[in-house]
Structures are given as C-alpha cells and as structure tokens.
Design a protein around this nucleic acid. Structure first.
Length: 561
RNA sequence: GGGGGUAUAGCUCAGUUGGAUAGAGCAACGGCCUUCUAAGCCGUGGGUCGAGGGUUCGAAUCCUUCUACCCCCGCCA
C-alpha cells in the first residue's frame, strides 16, 4: 500500500514537472510513512516539505498543488494538508480491507519477496570450538544466525547456513592436554595441571567416557575411547568427537540446522592454508621478523601487522580464517554474513585485510559481519560470569531445559544484535508467563480455538463468500488489525535488509497487541453470518501472519496452550 | 592510550533510517471471567531521550566535544 502511494506521488510530480509547475531537473526522493495517529490518515508524505525550497513555494501551497494534481485512483479516499506541509492520505475502505484477501490467498508466502533474486548468500554462525559446551553467547548467535537465514530465504535469497568447526590448532591441543590431565587424576588446582587448561567439570565427563571406552556417535564421526591415558592423539580425537556430539544435541534441541559443517582441518589437509600463505608471500605483503612470518595488514587499514606463522612453525588462527574465506568466495558466495560475538570484532579488519592481500578480486567490504553484543547472565539477582577456560558456565542446554526452546529462542532474538542482552534466568524460568513469546503464541492459539468452536457449532465457513463481506469490518479494533497486517511485508523486507530479526519479534508483539483487545471487545462467532464470516477471515489472516512471523524466528505456533 | 558498541519510564528494551503529542512489557495502583482460552482485556501514574554545542522548516535519530558502562587491542580462537 505504501508503495502504491509512493508511485502515485512520483507520477504526480513527474507530470507537474512537465507542466512547468515544478522545475524539470528535480529528482525528488518520495518518502511515504505510516502515520502514528489515525487522525492523520493512513499514510503521510513529506515531499512538499523537502521540495519546497527547490520549487520556490511555501510547503503548504506546494502540498495543495500536489494534491490537486493527483490522478484519479481507487485507493485514496481523500487527502489533507497538515502541520507544516505534510500530505495525509486517507485510504478507501476497500484498499485497507484487501490485505485479508492477500494474506489468505498467499498463505505461507505472504510477506515473502524475491528481492534477493535467487542470489547466493552464506550465513556463518555459532562456529564454536569443540572445546566445551555451547553457552548463552552461542545461543544468541544460533538464534540470530538461524533467523537471519530464514529471513534471507524469505526475501528471495539462496541462503546457506554454515558452522566453521575449528578442529585444529592450539586450543584443541589445550583441550587434549586438559582431558589427559583429568585421565591422570589431576585437578585444576594441582601443580602439574597444564597451563591454560580447561578447568570445567565437563572435562571430567570426557575423561571418564574416554577411560570407560565409550563410543561417541557425532554427526560426522564415530570414535571409541581407547582408555589409554598416555595416548594424547587418541584423547584428542575422542574429546573433539565427544564435545562435537554435545553441541549437535544442543543445536538440535534448539531447532537450528546447518547446511554445512566446515572443518578447519580440511583446509590443512587439502593444502588451502599453504596455498594462501604462498599467495600472500608472492604478492609481497609479508615479511619475517623475530623468527615469525608477518602479514602487513596495516596496508589494509589494520592498526598493526599480524603474525601469520609463529616462531614455533604453527599458523595463527587468522591464516586458516583467510583461507576459509577465500574458499567461501570460490564457492560462489557473492555475499557472506559472518554472525559472531562482538568479542571477535578484531578479526573483521584482519580477515578483510588478508583477503585484499590475496588480490583475488574480492570486494573490499566483503564479507559482511553481524556482531552481537555480549550476553550477561543473571541468576539470583547476581551476574554469572561466563568463562570457558575457568569452567564457569551457563549452557544452552540448561536454558532450553529450564525455559523451553521457544522462550529461549525468542528471548535471544528479540533484541537488537548491537544491544547488550541481559538474560535473567530466574525470569525466563520461574516467570516464563511474562515472556512476550507466550503473548504472541496465545493469540495464535486463541484463533485456533475459535475455529474449533466453529466446527463444534456445525456452522460452516465459506472463504470466498467471506472475502465478499470484508466491508463488515468497521470496528476501530478491526481497522487497527488491518493496518497492522498490511505492514508485515515491509517489516520482513526491512528486517532482512538490515539483518535485524528482532524487528520481526517486535512486529509480532504489536500484531498480537492489536488482536487481543479486538478479541476481548468483539465476539467472532456471532449470529450475523456475514459479520461472522468477515471476522473469521480477518482472524485467519492474523493467524497466518503470526505463524509466518514466528517461523522466521524459529519459534513454534501452537494450536492450543 | 587506540578501536568498536551502548546510554530512552523504577527494571528490561523498542523507536519504521530526519517527521506531527517519544512507545511496549515487567514492576506499582484501580477495575473486568455463568460468554469464542484471564498466558487475556480496560483504566491511572511514571521521561531534561547521559551532558553541552552544531546542522534545518523539524533531531531520541545526523556532526562535534565530554561523561559513564561493555567488548577488543596475543606468536589464543
């Protein structure tokens, strides 16, 4: 609807320019906004304000001229000039009610678009090292990243989700040594405990399983514990498989699916890391110093150069990162979004610098990043410090088990990624009824309940007939719901473009907030068949949009609660 | 010291990309269930949008200077 008005205004301005009512060289940016106050109509534009100076007319006069020049159409009932020169559009009843038909006809497709035109995009998220259970921060990444994939798919992108799985490098060695120490009966306070070892209790579980000869069935690997505390290699393989399986279980419980798990070790195995290094050296962006190989990232906007190959011969993590991203580029992902915690912010410049230094034709700002700010966990009114290496933890599994999948997901996705998030466990668990997700799901369940009631009553519902009766929707509550439904496609488009799933969450809250008052004020199953049909049609539309929106967040839409 | 983020009601947070009188939930207070589900609805109170300056018809939103908090600044990831 907003677009229709925008086009109408553009036409009008173009014809005014032809008539000489406006300067011909004007390239007006037509902006149309929804009004906050219904007394200002349905939509409003500020064109008269922005063009006043160029047109050499007072804004209100110009607004009047524009209104007078507006071509005849089916959607605008009348216009008003308000305030300093806003043009307020009051839409015809038909145009406002037509959204019900669109929703019911398009069903699950309502709100989707082809803006992405089938282009490939990859979203990488979570990418936790297999050195411990997933914690709340990973949960936020999972919720945001997964929703982002759904949003991109819904807006016409060919979206693929990916988990970069770091199964090589120093932290894995560290993990193996920690498990070995536990196998040997050491605890983190003993003097022989490895430096920087993982101190968490879960390491004990891994060690017990290894010593007990347990078999681990992870998604991509099956390992049986050798039971030999001296075999560090066997311990490493077992520990990685063990923790990988734990992460699989958590992600599955969270309803998050990955199209691809990418193994860091594969980059070493197929020579991609070496090849990247050679290319960087050949391009002249490296130098040796203090026994290490450095990349001159300062040539590409970094504040200091970075070590690629340590003096012990091993590569720093960012070298495989660069090789990995080159691989993504070569796989044809013209767009890549890396969803990470803000504590990894420093890798952004570094990876981009490395990619530029490869001189592989990769655009400068590639890839995109969505960095979510840190999650603070509160329990018993106190902050719970999360430290993987120290072993203090609030795991994703705890949250899902205690607060439920839907509430946890909603909670983690409902805020702007750039905003720090306080996850109050007591609130999520003990007062879960206060969680807005139930408010939204309840609206869906209520509508389902009405339909069950309708069925019990033996009355029928003819959708085609109902769509002819939409003019019966005259209550203010109903108009509010109609206006809200009309917004949905814009919200989805906006959320996808800005990579902000929380906009969908906010919208659903608003929609439910328009539905519940209507439900309370007016019965749907009334005697008057025409009115009943009209209200049922509107209710079905609300149910559809709630289901569509919740799906974008990975949250279920229950039929009863 | 440098880089990034944030600052909006008692608390947790929105704010449609610069629009009209700044919103929601929770918390507080007062009402509403023999009616399609009360996880709901109706009403009341609550604000120097961190502070100063600037840009313009118009600023919570943009620029600038401060202040406070979070994250990063490793030959860890």
């Amino acid at each position: 609807m907003k677009e229709a008005i925008t086009r109408l205004l553009e036409q009008t301005l173009a014809s005014m320019a032809e008539n000489g009512q406006l300067p011909a060289d004007l390239t007006p940016k037509v902006q149309v906004d929804r009004t906050r106050d219904p007394s200002h109509g349905d939509l409003a534009s500020n064109v008269a304000l922005t063009l006043a100076k160029a047109a050499g007319k007072p804004p209100r006069d110009l607004a009047g001229a524009i209104c007078a020049a507006l071509p005849a159409n089916q959607i605008v009932e009348r216009t008003e000039i308000a305030g300093p020169g806003f043009i307020n559009f009051f839409l015809t009843q038909d145009s406002g009610q037509a959204v019900v038909k669109r929703v019911l006809e398009q069903g699950e497709a309502f709100g989707r678009s082809d803006a992405g035109a089938g282009r490939k995009v990859q979203v990488e998220f979570v990418s936790a090292n297999p050195t411990g259970p997933l914690h709340v921060g990973h949960g936020r990444g999972a919720a945001v990243g997964d929703s982002l994939c759904r949003l991109l798919t819904a807006t016409g992108w060919d979206a693929a989700s990916e988990f970069y799985y770091n199964d090589a490098g120093a932290q894995i060695d560290n993990l193996a040594r920690s498990v070995q120490a536990r196998c040997q009966g050491l605890d983190p306070d003993s003097p022989e405990w490895p430096a920087d070892g993982y101190r968490g209790e879960y390491i004990v579980d891994v060690a017990k399983a290894y010593l007990g000869g347990e078999t681990i069935d992870a998604e991509d690997r099956h390992v049986t514990g050798a039971g030999d505390a001296d075999n560090l290699e066997a311990i490493r393989d077992f520990a990685v498989a063990y923790l990988r399986r734990e992460q699989d279980l958590d992600l599955k419980a969270f309803g998050v699916h990955f199209d691809c798990y990418f193994l860091e070790s594969a980059l070493y195995a197929d020579g991609a890391v070496e090849a990247a290094v050679e290319r960087l050296v050949a391009n002249g962006h490296t130098y040796e110093k203090d026994g290490a190989l450095w990349l001159r990232t300062t040539d590409f906007g970094d504040d200091k150069d970075r070590v690629m190959r340590k003096s012990d011969g091993a590569y720093t993590y960012f070298v495989p990162d660069v090789a990995y991203h080159l691989n993504k580029w070569e796989r044809g992902f013209g767009r890549v979004i890396d969803e990470q915690g803000a504590d990894h912010h420093s890798t952004v410049t570094r990876v981009r610098a490395g990619l530029q230094a490869l001189q592989a034709g990769i655009p400068e700002g590639w890839p995109d990043y969505v960095l979510h700010q840190m999650v603070t966990v509160m329990r018993g009114g106190e902050e719970v410090k999360i430290s993987k290496r120290a072993g203090s933890y609030v795991t994703m599994r705890d949250l899902i088990e205690q607060a439920g999948r839907d509430a946890t997901r909603f909670f983690l996705v409902a805020r702007s990624p750039s905003s720090q998030l306080t996850f109050d466990i007591d609130l999520a668990v003990s007062q879960s009824n206060d969680n807005p997700v139930y408010y939204i799901q309840y609206a869906h369940a209520r509508i389902c309940s009405i339909l069950r009631k309708l069925e019990e009553s033996g009355e029928g519902f003819d959708q085609d007939a109902a769509l002819q009766q939409l003019d019966k929707l005259q209550e203010e509550h109903e108009k509010a719901v109609l206006r809200q439904l009309d917004r949905y496609p814009e919200v989805v488009a906006n959320a996808a473009v800005n990579a902000e799933p929380h906009q969908v969450a906010n919208y659903l809250r608003d929609l439910a907030g328009d539905f519940h008052p209507w439900y309370n004020a007016h019965r749907t199953l009334v005697e008057d068949t025409a009115l009943r049909d009209a209200r049922l049609a509107l209710s079905l539309a609300v149910r559809q949009v709630i289901a569509n929106g919740l799906d974008l967040l990975g949250v279920s839409a229950p039929e009863s609660m």
